[in-house]
Nucleic acid binder design. Structure first.
Length: 692
DNA sequence: CTGTCGTTTATTTTT
DNA sequence: TAAACGACAG
């Protein structure tokens, strides 16, 4: 029990101890949010609340995983004190952890049980953003809507917007011609999804809500199961997630929400800051607790951050403070252009390295991915290893998606979107028009079944023999793969697919024609091996089941291995993957400001602090978006523990064209007495700089 | 059906 | 700059 309150301040203890009724905790950056959350779960368990009655919701798998680890490390000793001689204790604890998961994984879990209520089958597939976009394009094609006047990406985002407002296709009343078109696509899109026996990411929340609304019994079942609900990052919940949680919490009202309105940076992804701002209206009896003590940063950094965020109008009143030292001044440096900026950053890093810091102590943050390039080039030139977080996702890579598409077809033969991806990969003489005809082919099946359709279609007398052959061949391939899935395990199945379709040959050719060299090919093969490593987790299961679980994990775990690790320690300019670098990670980190949320580093560089870039030019016209940019800046600044270095350039090359920039307005919001300004005109080696 | 060539467009992205 | 898309010829 002592252990539960160890190292907690009074506010945190208060937040941990109020068991009954709604609680809202506003937790500033570095104020021990995760600690508060995990200790609360441990406390609930120590009060004899069944773990099965506790639900903890996070936004990322990573956060969920961390929470699980930390909770078991707190609870284990507590429980083992009670029955120290019991050898089963450890096992028991592990089996009795509460359900901790992302919104989407919890939604998925509910759907696996309840989706027949909506007329889908249980083996439905989950579509990612790519699939969604393809489906929208296809639907628009069928409705003969011109993609020039209606950009499919925008159409999709509009659909998603309507959908997450929990408006069903039938009940959507568009206000004008433009929205009328969106509505048509929305209706067709949703119908098509159901036909494909697929759900998209939004559906993982929206459909459970739909079920809860139409079946009181079902809702009650889950309300009874989860009497205690905790939600992390409450400021980032969207409307549908908000309704989802509040339906579940309605009966027992034991809702614990934690978050920080000042760190809401995902409104563009429909996070609705009002959910946290209105908590008190929703739950008038709620206890509100502010965690304002920061354990992370120096006083100077905290004061600078306050200076920035205080310019925002819309926020819950609070003031961050810290017992830490004042620390050094914040360095703000003007540079000529992005090359000069990069070399300035490196010279600074070298200075810190001389003072005993190591690579992993540094983070370089930027507003957009495009900015990483100049920094990367400079790092490669000087031979410093680094890693980039985000950018290209492992499961977004072509070779991975191709193989997964084959797996998807085996599991859900209605998924003809997966078919669309690989019907001609590797190229086998089947084209778009053939595909369309196959799709329209009627089989005796009530449900569309790709393999069956192919079997029927390949017998068509009217077809030219060449095409019949191609289709028969394709059918055989899929049938063989399907048969293999009956006997082998997942790893063997993937291997079989790669061999059966001669994927390696195809990749080799593909890599060559794409004007990139063999390096590219090697990387791709390496990725496939990596895929098999992940798949080996399921080797004890029969292929069908293993594949199902695997696909499910992939759908929800889009961000595994999102770290692209690079180093230049090898031959000049040669980029080598560090993926298998065992946790050593003696590298510095480059990432967008968004990706940095929740992390901390002794030294943080924020580069490209310019009007038009940060705040981004698209955000400056809109006051709401400008406030979000400011919160983003606040997040970036508060990542720093000891040193904060901000740079901006006078001139910048972006997308191949030149532009002249002014320093960001956010720079001016930092109290001047905390800043060590380094302007170009005051540089001693001005002549040097001109060279850049 | 396939490959090439010019045109277009470009934030952020926990799932 | 560079990747992604669509038009068009082979």
């Amino acid at each position: 029990m002592d252990k539960i309150f160890e190292n907690l301040n009074n506010k945190q203890i208060e937040a941990v101890k109020i068991i009954d009724g709604p609680v809202l905790v506003i937790s500033g950056p570095g104020s021990g949010k995760t600690r508060c959350l995990t200790h609360r779960v441990a406390y609930l368990m120590s009060q004899n609340i069944e773990p099965a009655n506790i639900l903890a919701v996070t936004f990322t798998n990573k956060a969920a995983g961390e929470m699980r680890d930390r909770i078991s490390s707190i609870t284990e000793p507590v429980l083992s004190n009670k029955g120290s001689e019991n050898h089963n204790t450890k096992y028991m604890i592990h089996s009795t952890l509460p359900l901790i998961g992302t919104f989407h994984s919890i939604g998925l879990r509910i759907l696996r049980n309840e989706i027949p209520q909506l007329g889908y089958r249980r083996n439905f597939t989950v579509f990612d953003t790519d699939d969604q976009l393809n489906l929208v394009k296809r639907v628009m094609g069928e409705l003969e809507i011109d993609v020039k006047s209606f950009n499919p990406r925008i159409v999709l985002s509009k659909i998603s917007e309507v959908k997450t407002q929990l408006i069903l296709p039938e009940s959507y009343e568009p206000k004008d011609y433009y929205l009328e078109t969106i509505a048509r696509v929305y209706r067709a899109y949703q119908k098509e999804l159901k036909e494909l026996n697929a759900v998209d990411f939004d559906d993982l929340i929206v459909l459970p809500v739909q079920i809860f609304k139409q079946s009181e019994d079902t809702l009650e079942k889950y309300q009874e199961a989860w009497k205690y609900i905790l939600v992390d990052e409450y400021q980032d919940t969207s409307y549908d997630q908000y309704i989802f949680i509040n339906l579940l919490a309605k009966k027992y009202r034991n809702l614990f929400a934690i978050g920080d309105d000042a760190q809401s940076i995902y409104q563009f992804r429909r996070a609705d800051i009002r959910n946290i701002l209105n908590f008190q209206k929703d739950y008038p009896e709620a206890k509100i607790i502010l965690l304002e003590q920061n354990y992370r940063s120096t006083k100077n950094i905290i004061t600078a951050a306050q200076g920035i965020i205080s310019q925002n109008k819309n926020q819950i009143q609070k003031s961050l403070w810290t017992d830490n030292n004042h620390g050094g001044k914040i360095i703000i440096s003007e540079t000529m252009n992005e090359r000069h900026e990069a070399s300035f950053v490196i010279s600074k890093i070298e200075e810190f390295l001389r003072n005993g810091l190591t690579a992993k102590d540094f983070a370089i943050l930027y507003r957009t991915h495009a900015q990483s390039r100049s920094i990367e080039e400079a790092l490669i030139m000087s031979g410093y290893p680094y890693q980039i977080v985000g950018g290209l996702k492992f499961y977004d890579r072509k070779e991975i998606k191709d193989i997964i598409a084959y797996l998807k077809i085996i599991i859900n033969p209605s998924d003809n979107l997966a078919l669309e991806r690989i019907y001609n990969v590797p190229s086998r003489g089947i084209g778009k028009s053939t595909l369309t005809k196959v799709r329209e082919e009627k089989t005796n099946n009530l449900r569309p079944d790709i393999i069956a359709s192919l079997a029927v279609y390949m017998k068509k007398e009217t077809l030219p023999p060449k095409q019949r052959l191609a289709i028969a061949e394709f059918h055989k391939t899929l049938a063989d793969i399907s048969k293999t899935a009956e006997t082998k395990n997942l790893g063997a199945l993937i291997k079989y697919i790669i061999k059966r379709i001669k994927y390696e040959d195809y990749l080799k050719e593909f890599s060559l024609t794409k004007q990139s060299d063999y390096e590219n090919f090697d990387d791709r093969m390496e990725n496939l091996r990596e895929l098999m490593t992940v798949a080996s987790k399921y080797e004890d299961l029969p292929a069908k089941e293993g594949t199902e679980r695997f696909l499910e994990e992939l759908a929800l775990l889009q961000d595994t291995d999102r770290v692209k690790s690079l180093t230049s320690n090898h031959t000049a300019g040669r980029i080598k993957s560090l993926k298998n670098d065992p946790a050593g990670k003696q590298v510095m980190t480059l990432m967008t400001t968004h990706a940095s949320k929740g992390l901390e580093f002794p030294v943080v560089f924020i580069v490209g602090m310019e009007e038009g870039l940060f705040p981004h030019s698209r955000a400056v016209i809109n006051p709401t978006e400008l406030e979000e940019e400011r919160r983003l800046c606040y997040v970036a600044v508060t990542r720093a523990k000891e040193h904060l270095i901000i740079t901006y350039t006078r001139f910048r090359n972006i997308y191949g064209s030149h532009s002249m920039n002014l320093p960001s307005r956010f720079i001016g919001e930092i109290p001047a007495n905390l800043v060590d300004y380094q302007l170009i005109d005051s540089f001693e080696d001005r002549e040097e700089i001109i060279r850049y």
